[in-house]
């Protein structure tokens, strides 16, 4: 199944399973989504449950929060992750804090699906991911599936969970296919996946960078005879420190790679976990590979320049070998 189709599959499954679930966003209904990720769902489930919204992320995100508070289970699509800041109050001050502020009375079973990631020449306002920002908000959960299987599993888990969860999908992966079929079970949050086992170095990545890391691992094996372990974080909040620590103790070397700038980023959290759990086993300092401290530029040449690729990962690994 392809990545974009896994979105549709998970939505269809959950809409069918629970009448309290509804899906809304800009152009997700009749048009079926800009990536065909919800094509046919409005015909199948009706306009009340697969709803086109006016542009106005703050308003419809707030409406989703209110609906979640009063018995419904909304799934909201924010077409580009860069539009999350438009509705940030409803996520940060409302969805994330309402249960806490209410002393545990309230539940906010809200799922936000959004498309992040660079590499498609979408320009500075359509290429960000914001996982570090969102992952630092108590009350929110953040997952970033890198495969169609994980898209299905995490979306289902998010929709069935009673807390607000943000599922950041990656535009660059929409056409990616794996051998998953319909019927993937929900995946628990907070469990990283070892995508490739190795002995000499651990490469930690998430979302699209997992595939770049796997490419780098292939090159390291072929060109340097280095055996790299690749860990896909999958879940940003909560973070699976245990899997990171175990791998670091095994290999003694860790490189993290991310699409977003490294300052106050998730790579720094990974480094902290490694330091806490594997300090005595380390043979080299943790390397954080990420773009320079700039927005994502539009021009293809400049975008390629700032984004990490397999080459930059290979170079970082060679530096600590």
């Amino acid at each position: 199944m392809k990545y974009y189709a896994a979105i549709r599959e998970a939505l269809r499954c959950e809409l069918e399973r629970d009448p309290r679930v509804f899906f809304m966003g800009e152009d997700v209904g009749k048009p079926g989504g800009i990536y065909a990720q919800s094509r046919g769902l409005q015909e199948e489930f009706g306009v009340e449950r697969v709803r086109d919204t006016p542009a106005g992320e703050l308003g419809f995100m707030g409406a989703a929060v209110g609906a979640a508070l009063t018995g419904a289970r909304p799934v909201v699509e924010i077409s580009f992750a860069d539009f999350i800041p438009v509705c940030l109050d409803q996520l940060v001050n409302q969805a994330a804090k309402i249960r806490y502020m209410s002393g545990g009375q309230a539940r906010v079973p809200l799922t936000v699906v959004t498309f992040g990631g660079a590499g498609r020449n979408a320009g500075p306002q359509h290429s960000g991911s914001y996982e570090a920002l969102l992952g630092s908000i108590p009350g929110l959960r953040v997952v970033m599936p890198s495969t169609p299987y994980d898209v299905q599993g995490f979306l289902k888990a998010a929709i069935r969970d009673d807390d607000p969860t943000i599922v950041i999908l990656n535009k660059a992966l929409l056409g990616l296919a794996d051998d998953s079929e319909a019927g993937v079970e929900p995946i628990p949050f907070g469990e990283a996946a070892v995508r490739r086992e190795g002995e000499d170095v651990t490469i930690v990545a998430w979302s699209a960078m997992v595939h770049t890391a796997l490419e780098a691992a292939d090159r390291l094996a072929a060109e340097d005879g280095v055996s790299a372990e690749v860990i896909d974080l999958r879940s940003i909040q909560p973070l699976d420190g245990e899997t990171i620590g175990a791998s670091a103790r095994k290999t003694g070397r860790v490189v993290t790679v991310q699409e977003t700038v490294s300052f106050a980023g998730i790579g720094a959290e990974v480094a902290a976990e490694v330091s806490r759990r594997a300090f005595g086993w380390l043979d080299a300092p943790v390397q954080i590979v990420g773009p320079p401290f700039t927005p994502v530029p539009f021009s293809k040449l400049m975008e390629e320049f700032v984004l990490p690729d397999a080459g930059s990962i290979v170079r970082a690994v060679r530096e600590i070998l």
Partner: peptide, 9 residues
């Protein structure tokens, strides 16, 4: 907006 959501649900 939250109130709108309560009406929607």
């Amino acid at each position: 907006p939250i109130a709108v959501g309560a009406a929607l649900s």
